[in-house]
């Protein structure tokens, strides 16, 4: 098992533990982006780089990473979703490491585009990374923001699409690569759970805004989630299920 895989496993175990204890969490959404987050936070992002989470349902995953990195206090994740906790199920601005509040879909990319623009106007050279979900691609603001990002020449903006096929429940967006390319973005399509593919894609040079289509599996790592993502969308495990999910997580390796 690689260091990356061990880290992903460790964070998923932590989330399962907290979800079981607190009876909260959108686990499949968070598991879907864990490989992306770990690659970004442990391998790619430099200190001055910024990350914007747009798909709020995956905030649990971001919190787990922020706690592990020491950006949140150790143990703070134990308060997740509890009375008077800072950690709402959808991340909110003001929490260390959370640049914008999440929850309502289609807000993160326009904000990330604006921040990338503002950074450049302030002569900063840092990169802005954002993760959006394919489900929220039905929101028109994403496409408007893509138009704006190209118009403004934001070559330091990287958007990672967590393509876990949620959009198929609504309007299925076929030929995503062609659509993004039609907006003049640089596009790569990868397996969003493969460490090397993620790292290679994130290290690529680009001269226009960059969209990485990361094909993922909702609930990756636990077969129950993967097979019944809808059932587990906002469900927290009971004791028996918790043990089962931990076992599935280990079997998956």
């Amino acid at each position: 098992m690689t260091t990356h895989e061990k880290k992903v496993r460790q964070l998923k175990e932590r989330m399962l533990e907290v979800s079981y204890k607190n009876q909260q969490g959108f686990l499949p959404s968070a598991f879907s982006i864990l490989d992306i987050l770990v690659t970004l936070y442990y391998e790619i992002m430099e200190e001055e780089d910024q990350f914007v989470l747009s798909k709020g349902h995956a905030a649990f995953g971001l919190y787990a990473v922020l706690e592990d990195k020491g950006i949140l206090e150790k143990g703070e994740l134990d308060t997740f979703g509890q009375y008077r906790s800072r950690l709402s199920l959808m991340a909110e601005r003001g929490i260390s490491g959370v640049l914008f509040s999440t929850g309502s879909l289609g807000h993160g990319l326009p904000e990330a585009v604006g921040m990338a623009y503002g950074n450049r106007a302030k002569k900063r050279e840092n990169r802005v990374f954002t993760v959006i979900g394919d489900g929220e691609l039905n929101e028109g603001t994403n496409w408007e923001a893509m138009l704006a990002a190209y118009k403004f020449g934001l070559d330091h903006l990287v958007c990672i699409l967590d393509n876990n096929h949620t959009t198929e429940q609504g309007i299925d967006l076929t030929n995503l690569r062609r659509k993004f390319e039609a907006f003049n973005w640089h596009v790569e399509e990868i397996n969003g759970h493969k460490e090397q593919e993620l790292a290679d894609a994130l290290n690529q040079k680009h001269h226009v805004p960059y969209m990485i289509i990361a094909n993922t599996i909702k609930g990756k790592g636990c077969s129950s989630f993967e097979q019944q993502a809808g059932l587990w969308h906002s469900k927290a495990p009971n004791e028996e299920e918790y043990k089962m999910l931990l076992k599935e997580l280990n079997e998956n390796d």
Binding site: E111, K122, G140
Partner: peptide, 15 residues
């Protein structure tokens, strides 16, 4: 809608 979100990004960048 996007213009307002974009403006929020500018504000977060210190503009």
């Amino acid at each position: 809608s996007t213009a307002v979100g974009f403006a929020a990004g500018l504000a977060a960048a210190g503009m």
